[in-house]
Nucleic acid binder design. Structure first.
Lengths: 320, 320
DNA sequence: GGGCGCGACTGACACGTGTAACTTGCTCCC
DNA sequence: GGGAGCAAGTTACACGTGTCAGTCGCGCCC
């Protein structure tokens, strides 16, 4: 490559990296770029990583709970955003048990790690020490600066509660998910509902755990009804569909029997009878924010602030 | 590391890699392993990749269509399987447009690449040349050896058709998806339905494209009814739910109006009214097969054969 | 007793890159 | 005329690993 461009290897490196404080004549630069193009040359990431001690890979650790299409969409957008910034976005699914010594991070030496949860402060420090520029745990308890999505999830709950309060409901229920693995999502959402109720001087929401199952949901429905609840916020659309099925089994109809609002805007939400009111998140905007945060940390720069209210939106349908 | 174990660097390498044809005394081996453990030493993947020209990363390229939880589950299982084999499984979502020069492969130098589709034979050859041991395009036209999931998808369609034929239906419809991006899944499934019909000497299935939308589905439902169709295979559960919504709008009920069978066994399928009969795939078994295929190619060995019939299963519910 | 094989280990090189330090013309100013 | 300064490159080293070729004792056999 350096040979056929007729320059030294160092010059090639300077040209390809636009190294500052290095002066390269236009002619030489063109020759190098030409040669690279005709040879289809791409620098070896391995060598570069070895030399600099840091790769341009952004690693996203997926938790072990079932990922739906919202997360899928978020990942796709993240990939696009990072590609635009010259970073390689890569996802590692699977349980923590699969990576015994935590050697994955040492092995990949990523520039940044995004995880939904699961980092102790010690774990974060260890990653830092291993050369990772930024570690972001999106959710979970702990100091705010690194929990980028916590406020967004709370906002979702607030929006659900506010919508039902606006419709005149005075006693609100919450359908909490059965699966313990999604608690990190459920807790902030429920906190948001609580905050929304408090804001309107409504009593605390009546929380029941609802498995994705018609009979289990029917039990909760009867409990809500006898407690005077007239509207329910569901953890997500799946749980909402279960509540809907439970109401059907109980001979009730939405919104007359119970008003119902979900989260995620699944395709199935639109097709339900009645069509499900739901809260949707602008995954593209969230992805752009996360990417900007990472890029700022890796390249240096101001970290952006996410306007949680701007990325969540209510989709009104027949169930409320 | 080598210093504190009191041996040469080469010896460390031999111990840690269990290099064949190298004899290491038990005492030395123990000293090295001890030192590695107390130091928390993990070899640098970058250096290793640079030296060997091949990393232990298995890269999975996701297409740009929305990934549901079946794919999510497949990825999780793949991750576990590969971890057990000492390989690192990593997923790259996003459109091909995001990786302009195809430099991702050159940059990562993965041991193997799994993709759902999108490789021309020339592209595969290029990857081979770049040092990738195995390239698997899971679906799509082309020579069989590398289309590992094609037969499984066909089997799904066969199973749908066989189930409806067994129930006595003589005229079968097919609800084809609206989204052009999922055609690689839809085509083999439809081929399977065709084969299943032919096997039972039934006429060709009556194919209609159905958007995930109640009104669009209602049009298709009326068309099927007037053509004498009594049962419909849907591309997946989402399309099936749309058909169900279309039937509701038309005043029909399943299975009396039309029997209906979907694919994927979404949580929503169980909650629909009536509950949806569907075909589900054992993603764990598929993942194990794919992992075994890759491991065989990377380490050398016999490539396993997937019994397509064993991994798909019918879930009978009220809609048929 | 000398050569040979063998177990156990070490020395040295190569992989492809980033970058600090150095060289070489050339211009410009006192 | 000569040194300072700068543009335009080059040389050389380091990153951490895998592995080939050697080295060094030591027992064994003819």
């Amino acid at each position: 490559m350096a040979r056929i461009a007729g320059v030294s290897r160092a010059t090639v490196s300077y040209v390809l990296n636009d190294t500052p404080r290095q002066t390269i004549s236009g002619a030489t630069r063109a020759r190098v770029l030409d040669a690279a193009a005709t040879l289809g040359y791409a620098p070896s990431a391995a060598a570069r990583t070895l030399r600099t001690g840091r790769s341009d890979v952004v690693l996203c650790l997926l938790p072990d709970w079932p990922i739906g299409q919202e997360v899928g969409s978020l990942l796709t957008h993240l990939s696009t955003e990072f590609a635009a910034a010259g970073l390689t976005f890569v996802v590692h699914p699977g349980t923590p048990a699969d990576r015994p010594g935590g050697d994955l991070w040492k092995a990949i030496t990523p520039a940044a790690v995004l995880a939904f949860t699961g980092f102790s402060d010690a774990g974060i420090a260890a990653l830092r020490a291993a050369g990772v520029a930024l570690v972001v745990a999106l959710l979970g308890p702990g100091p705010r600066p690194h929990r980028e999505l916590q406020a967004t999830q709370e906002r979702i709950g607030r929006l659900q509660a506010a919508h039902l309060a606006d419709a005149g409901h005075l006693r609100i229920g919450y359908a909490y998910p059965d699966d313990a693995r999604v608690r990190i999502f459920a807790e902030p959402r429920l906190d948001g509902v609580r905050a929304g109720c408090a804001e309107r001087a409504l009593p605390e929401p009546e929380v029941h755990t609802v498995a994705v199952d018609a009979e289990a949901a029917a039990v909760a429905v009867r409990a809500w009804r006898s407690a005077g609840v007239t509207a329910v916020c569901a953890y997500n659309d799946e749980v909402a569909l279960a509540v809907l099925a439970g109401m059907r089994d109980t001979g009730l109809d939405a919104p007359a029997g119970l008003a119902l609002v979900g989260v995620d805007d699944l395709p199935a939400a639109r097709l339900a009878a009645p069509a499900l009111t739901t809260v949707t998140t602008d995954q593209r905007a969230v992805a752009a924010h996360l990417a900007a945060t990472v890029v700022a940390a890796v390249r240096g720069g101001e970290r952006p602030v996410l306007d949680a209210a701007a990325v969540v939106r209510l989709v009104r349908r027949a169930s409320t």
